[in-house]
Design a protein around this nucleic acid. Sequence first.
DNA 1: ATGATATAACACCATTTGGTTTTATGTAAA
DNA 2: TTTACATAAAACCAAATGGTGTTATATCAT
Lengths: 123, 123
Amino acid sequence: MSASAEKVDVFQAIADPTRREVLRLLAEKELPISAITSHFPISRTAVVKHLHILADADLVTGHKVGREKIYRLHPGPLTEVKQWLSFYEQFWNNKLSMLKHLVETDGDTALTVVQSEPDQKRK
Amino acid sequence: MSASAEKVDVFQAIADPTRREVLRLLAEKELPISAITSHFPISRTAVVKHLHILADADLVTGHKVGREKIYRLHPGPLTEVKQWLSFYEQFWNNKLSMLKHLVETDGDTALTVVQSEPDQKRK
DNA sequence: ATGATATAACACCATTTGGTTTTATGTAAA
DNA sequence: TTTACATAAAACCAAATGGTGTTATATCAT
């Protein structure tokens, strides 16, 4: 596996569009570095750096086969993002949004204005 | 930065832990800048920069009330992240993962692939 | 009007990031 | 064995990032 336990935050890892594109490529099938590089206008070295970051976030794993290093998608850590998102889903799924959250967690609380209609008229 | 619509990528916006914490705070209730700042060890100026980035990603909105600027959560753009994630859920839900994906890409999966690729022939 | 408060706008700085090129090493094939 | 291929490692660079402090402006409370 990834020997360098640099522990990159998964949110940080997926922040870069190139890295997201790498993940999408690997979702189809595992690929050696050179094959991945051929999909981008940047140098092979740059792609390797992205792969290292993805590996440090445990989103990909690489194994050597002959002289090639094959990278494979390892989507597990994305569950962290999903969990994070699930907290906010309540805010766009039902309009009661924050009210509901507050009620369930805190009792009555002082509910100061909740995300409602932009009724403000400015000039 | 910038004050105008710089159109910050939502993935980029949520990459920073401080900004995620700001979102969590605003999920409870809308807050003025000073109240937000009091939750962090960093300067008010730094917090404002984070707020600008979040606003450029359309994840928060700010409106002035008297001398205060009140920031409010606007979770809509997070749907983009959710859609992106939904593509990968199939890979951790069933272990057949990529194989299955390739085989039944025309079924009911309704994968909302965000970007199309310059599709290369594979046999 | 005065003073305190809340934000805005700058200028500046250190570190990180995303990229390059160069050099070296291991492996496959001729 | 020699040559070509695939990766690794290192030095370097410009720009973005996350932070600071200072100064200015608008608003609220005396």
